[in-house]
Amino acid sequence: MTATVERTAPVTRVRPPSRRKSRRLEPFTIASYAGVICFGLVCAIPFWMVVAGSLTAESALSQRGYSFWPTPFSLDAYTTLFQGTRVWLSYGATIFITGIGTAIAVAATSGIAWVIARGLPRVSRPLAVFAYIPMLFNGGLVPMYILITQVLQLQNSWFAVILPLVIAPFLVFVQVSFFRATPQEILDAARIDGAGELRIFFQVVLPLSKPVIAVIALFYAVTFWNEWFHALLFLSQPEKFPLQLVLQNLISSVTNAAELGTTSAAPVYQMRLAMTVITIGPILLAYPFAQRYFVKGLTLGATKG
């Protein structure tokens, strides 16, 4: 019942300030626009240069450096990269790791965060410490490696990449602090209605927490999307490599003390940039869609029952 009220009420309540804003432009607003535009440019320009560079012929790139305009124009890097199945396979791997990883991570994180946020005596505090300790202490590479490859036998499984990363203490606390803001009255009302703890969590808390879930889902998704180190450790079949590992391999493919020649004529500079575009591209394209939900979610979250 409460939710029905919420869903109609904000429309009238949120509006007035914004209407007022459009009437009168204050200096702070102007300064904000300027500030955001400047920072936006600083962020966008290098990215544009990567795109332009990935389309510039290798010889111009290595001798003259980066420029704003791709001259002479060249698609060499992209044609080289998309030859064969490698990049496509790695997209598949990355999408699997990101999709499944984010689902597991959000589910597990929400669960523990809620129990911490509930403030249960003798449970919540120790649990918070329990979740926080791994942020400070870790067993290091060798034990982790032995655990995954020998105890759990997860080598060459994408889950070896996913599972060590599914609980980020930082995001647990982001979520805890949001859960804590859940209005007590709503919980009390639900309890009076006779709802159990689980039902409260699923029917009351989660629907109210879409914004947090959107935030942590995005952050987890980015983590999984950018993940290469665990993939390097635990995956040995090149068909299973995610995109970022392929990028890593490409960038560091010829460096060693006893350096050896290669017969391939891949454009080094250009290819790195193209690979960057390919790697960032999809998540960048997906981001506005996620963000649409994100922003909507945030607006919903702003309403207080």
Partner: peptide, 12 residues
């Protein structure tokens, strides 16, 4: 890195 250095030579 060596790949980048090599690329400078290879591009003239």
């Amino acid at each position: 890195d060596s790949a980048t250095a090599g690329a400078l030579f290879k591009s003239g």
